[in-house]
């Protein structure tokens, strides 16, 4: 019962957020200077009027608002103001799979590397390794995505590829500098995107394991004769992984937003690339459409992870009922 109430609450929150975001973008697009047909070219007033009538732009505002909302519900995000006959949804259909692919690779990398980095110092009980991990996580967290992206692009895509090329004698570069295609293309961007999230995970995991290892029941299980390895894996890890779910929302947000940057550095034809170029071109309908879609993605991901968290950890449902 509690659980159902929690899920319903989360879904209502999701709907309210989307409603507010849609309303905000509607207000925004109405207050921007110039309509969709107000280009530099002179247009005959009659044609202008016909166009406005065709797209319902001469209707009263509240009618336009209702139309806008109805279109959103149908998944129609409008038409690009710069590219002729290109709808925002067609661009999303083309670009989103690319971004999703990159995002999934990055998440997989971040989770595996983050777990490894959080676990290693505890497993080996090694001071030097602990400091090393601490330094690497600090670096990973504080470097903005574009710094990491450009460094990796230079060091791996330029320098390492060049070196490998001259050593192995292959005629093409192993890690291409830009573009998107086979596995070779995906390696460096995925690593660059994963680093920030990996740092956040490793930091939290490390702190969690350290905390748990000081608990009484750990001393008890050591007294029982469990080896250090067993204690860390069976008790400490289990307790430290759970809180990771609580930051999975921000983590996913950071991966989605980070992909905007990485896609621009490596010229990957994903959502971020289109988003940034449409902002630069002042393609208002496109920016607004892509923004609504991005907000949708992020909030959906947050809602899903919250629900998963509540499934795994019953305390979450009870606290949130308050």
């Amino acid at each position: 019962m509690e659980f159902i109430r929690f899920i319903v609450k989360r879904i209502i929150f999701f709907l309210i957020t989307m409603f507010l975001a849609a309303t905000f973008t509607f207000v925004l697009i109405k207050s921007l200077p110039g309509g969709p047909f107000g280009s530099d070219k002179m247009i005959h007033p009659q044609i202008m009027e016909n166009l406005n009538e065709k797209y319902g732009l001469n209707e009263p505002l509240h009618r336009q608002y209702i139309m806008y909302m109805q279109n959103l519900l149908k998944g129609d995000l409008g038409i690009s103001m710069i590219y002729k006959n290109r709808s925002v949804s067609s661009i999303i259909k083309r670009a989103f799979p690319v971004s999703l692919d990159l995002g999934i690779r990055a998440v997989a990398l971040a989770v595996s590397a983050g777990l490894l980095m959080g676990l290693l110092p505890a497993l080996h009980n090694n001071k030097v390794m602990d400091y090393l991990v601490l330094a690497v996580t600090m670096l990973a967290i504080s470097m903005p995505g574009f710094v990491m992206g450009m460094l990796l692009q230079y060091l791996v895509s330029f320098r390492l590829s060049e070196a490998l090329q001259s050593i192995t004698g292959i005629g093409y570069s192993i890690f291409p500098i830009t573009g998107w295609g086979s596995f070779r293309y995906t390696v460096v961007p995925s690593i660059a995107l994963a680093i920030g999230a990996m740092g956040m995970m490793a930091k939290m995991l490390r702190a969690g394991i350290k905390d748990t290892l000081n608990q009484n029941y750990i001393i008890m299980s050591r007294a029982k004769g469990m080896t250090h390895m067993e204690v860390v894996i069976r008790h400490a890890l289990k307790n430290a992984v759970l809180p990771l779910l609580s930051i999975s929302g921000p983590l996913i947000t950071s991966i989605i937003m980070g992909s905007f940057v990485i896609e621009n550095i490596f010229s990957i034809p994903g959502l971020g690339q289109y988003f940034v170029s449409s902002v630069q071109d002042k393609d208002y309908t496109m920016v607004v459409g892509l923004s609504v879609f991005t907000v949708f993605l992020v909030v959906l991901a947050n809602t899903l992870t919250d629900i998963i968290y509540a499934v795994v950890d019953p305390r979450v449902r009870i606290v949130s009922r308050k």
Partner: peptide, 18 residues
């Protein structure tokens, strides 16, 4: 909560657009 869940970059881009 709504403000927290909406990605910052999008909010900032929309406002600077205006």
């Amino acid at each position: 909560d709504v403000m927290y869940s909406v990605p910052n970059l999008v909010v900032v881009v929309l406002i600077t657009l205006l």
